[in-house]
């Protein structure tokens, strides 16, 4: 464990909690892409099946349980409890265009052609593009609630911090995982224009609105 990975995990946890509280407190999931949240639930489910097979640490296990629990709770709030506030018209990204190629790539490019490893690889690839429906929805509505931008900032920051973690581990532990790194770079790059808008607008107290 190193400081980049720990702050990365805490940033990820913060994002998940911010979103859950936003929906729960405002009793509304306006502006939130339910499709992205379903993809994240799939990402955690396929990645954390090793909860059943291997124990790494209390921290590792508890964080995985929290991530999975919050992901499904968020999906439940969006599609069941507050489904009247779900903006399905703007959440129109075709996720099959993500899941099918990612599934094919996971079968072709992986470290080990075993069930759990292919699922892990699928989860890594899927996570790198899972935010696209949410970013697409914001581009369609042309704006995002400030709390939603904080959620996205923490979510984008987490994998950027993981990139620093991988540099650290390469340098100090001479280990690195090309699949996780390449997917992590893609994932972080997808947030770049959002990061620019967040830093130039939201941090200056303005609302995030895109030139529609």
């Amino acid at each position: 464990m190193n400081v980049f990975r720990l702050t990365g995990d805490l940033s990820h946890l913060a994002a998940i909690i911010i979103l859950l509280l936003k929906i729960w407190k405002s009793r509304s999931c306006a502006g939130i892409s339910g499709k992205s949240q379903i993809l994240f639930a799939i990402v955690f489910t396929t990645r954390y099946l090793d909860l059943l097979t291997s124990f790494i640490s209390i921290y590792n296990t508890s964080m995985k349980v929290i991530y999975i629990g919050c992901a499904y709770a968020t999906v439940y709030l969006i599609y069941m409890k507050f489904r009247a506030t779900y903006d399905g018209n703007h959440d129109s990204f075709r996720v099959e265009f993500l899941v099918v190629p990612v599934g094919g790539l996971a079968v072709l490019v992986n470290h080990d052609f075993s069930f759990l490893e292919i699922l892990w690889t699928f989860s890594i690839y899927l996570e790198s593009v899972a935010i696209l429906p949410q970013l697409f929805m914001i581009s369609k509505t042309g704006e995002a609630e400030t709390i939603t931008t904080h959620y996205l900032f923490c979510l984008g920051l987490y994998r950027a911090l993981y990139l620093l973690n991988w540099i650290w581990r390469f340098y100090f532990e001479s280990f690195f995982d090309m699949i996780a790194i390449v997917a992590g770079v893609v994932q972080t790059v997808l947030y770049c224009d959002f990061f620019y808008l967040y830093i130039t607008k939201v941090l200056k107290g303005k609302k995030l609105s895109l030139p529609a």
Partner: peptide
């Protein structure tokens, strides 16, 4: 370098 055998990251 080597690859992680066990995925110890979240």
């Amino acid at each position: 370098w080597q690859r992680w055998s066990l995925h110890d990251e979240l």
